[in-house]
Design a protein around this nucleic acid. Structure first.
Lengths: 234, 234
DNA sequence: CAGACTTTCAATAACTTATCGAAAAGGCGT
DNA sequence: ACGCCTTTTCGATAAGTTATTGAAAGTCTG
């Protein structure tokens, strides 16, 4: 009944004669490529079907709605939340932990198959299917605010409202990922690493009480992120 | 030939019998209301026609494409660029001038009929019609970077890359206007004034060499903006 | 080998943006 | 008064979109 990853040879054969190896995964893969190239709204079910080797109406056997393809695609990209959850409860200075979280979130926004805002638009039109998206966002915001609060209480950061600071930090990530994906004509264009660094640098420079430490914070953050991803492998 | 704002009684009468007073303005007004309420993509030409009191196909007599309505609507919102142009060449400390520009830009993004990103999406799909949009953006970015550079050279600001700082400042404005328009569930919601202040505060706090001056900068910026808009009236 | 199950397909409904030619008025010259 | 030109609106329709439906074409199981 789950009809997931079933390389069975059953069912009516395709007109195209294309070999049917896990149609669900094939569709997701082809749809991802098209979403990356043209965006979600501009990609039609007919195009996805053509790329995946079946007819437009056959697509609806695997995904009853276009949004469901996006939903299936979403459930792979949640690593920055896991990092934030791990680092929030950790002891030690807040600055490198915050830097690591913000940098990882920005990198994920840049490398995700869909623009954050396009994704948010679809999620908002189907709240019952995309509740996890909003839950994840709220969780990330809460963890970010918590790390900011830790830094403010220890004197490492300036005295700021932690919720406002988290909103600004995440909002900056979102605003800058756009500049990575769609550079505006006449402006410098950035790599994913460059926008992530610019975003995290900007937020930390605003928060740190002693502003000279930024380079050290950045280095420590890199260590933390490397250590965490190594630990996550095992 | 310009067929603009022509309250002539000529032409075939409407089936709806509605009084025909400047159809072009009527359409823009009704379309604006619908765009604000539902967004651009979700508003159909049929709905606009119904609100304006004519048939869907008759709309195309006044606007050959849906984007043209948006384009007509755009040509009213360019005040923050004018402010930036006025303040960039002005003497005196950079901080309050930058604050005033960023705050005004954020307020405009919040009060505009369309979400910045939705507008950008349409503009990108019709670059030949929306070149002014990209020109304005590039100009605003250049002026912002110029003010940042003035502050950095005078020692008022920290030593930063002025282009990066401008990108981050404007990106933060854009990211935060989204939080004003569409508050995410579980997060605090902001008024237009609150997000504008949060955005400008955050950028200035990051840039100022002496971080205690923020409240004074904010007050000076309000004076500057008030003086400028009074001067613009005459 | 018969029936059940799985997968694909063509046809079609309902909606969208956009085009086209005809229709319905007013204004104007004669 | 009459025909003609211009302006404006309309209905019909094309081409594209997402999504539904019932039938068709295979494999698998008892």
């Amino acid at each position: 009944m789950t009809k997931d990853a079933a390389p069975s040879a059953a069912g009516r054969p395709r007109l195209s004669g294309a070999p049917t190896g896990s149609p669900r995964q094939d569709i997701i893969r082809e749809a991802t490529a098209l979403f990356v190239a043209k965006g979600y709204a501009e990609t039609t079910m007919s195009e996805i079907a053509r790329s995946a080797g079946l007819r437009q109406s056959s697509l609806y056997y695997w995904f009853a709605r276009k949004e469901h393809i996006l939903q299936a695609l979403l459930e792979e990209n949640r690593s920055s939340l896991a990092l934030a959850a791990a680092l929030e409860g950790q002891s030690g200075p807040a600055a490198p932990r915050l830097y690591a979280v913000l940098h990882a979130d920005a990198m994920q926004l840049c490398s995700a198959p869909l623009d954050f805002y396009e994704f948010e638009r679809v999620a908002r039109s189907q709240p019952q299917n995309f509740g996890a998206f909003f839950d994840d966002y709220a969780a990330l915001h809460r963890l970010t605010a918590s790390i900011v609060r830790q830094g403010a209480e220890s004197g490492e950061f300036q005295a700021v409202d932690s919720e406002d600071a988290a909103t600004a930090a995440l909002g900056l990530n979102e605003g800058l990922q756009r500049h990575y994906r769609q550079p505006l004509p006449g402006l410098r264009s950035y790599s994913a690493e460059q926008v992530s660094q610019l975003s995290a640098d900007t937020t930390l420079a605003r928060l740190l009480a002693a502003s000279g430490n930024l380079a050290a914070v950045r280095a420590e953050a890199a260590d933390i992120a490397a250590g965490w991803s190594a630990a996550a492998e095992s």
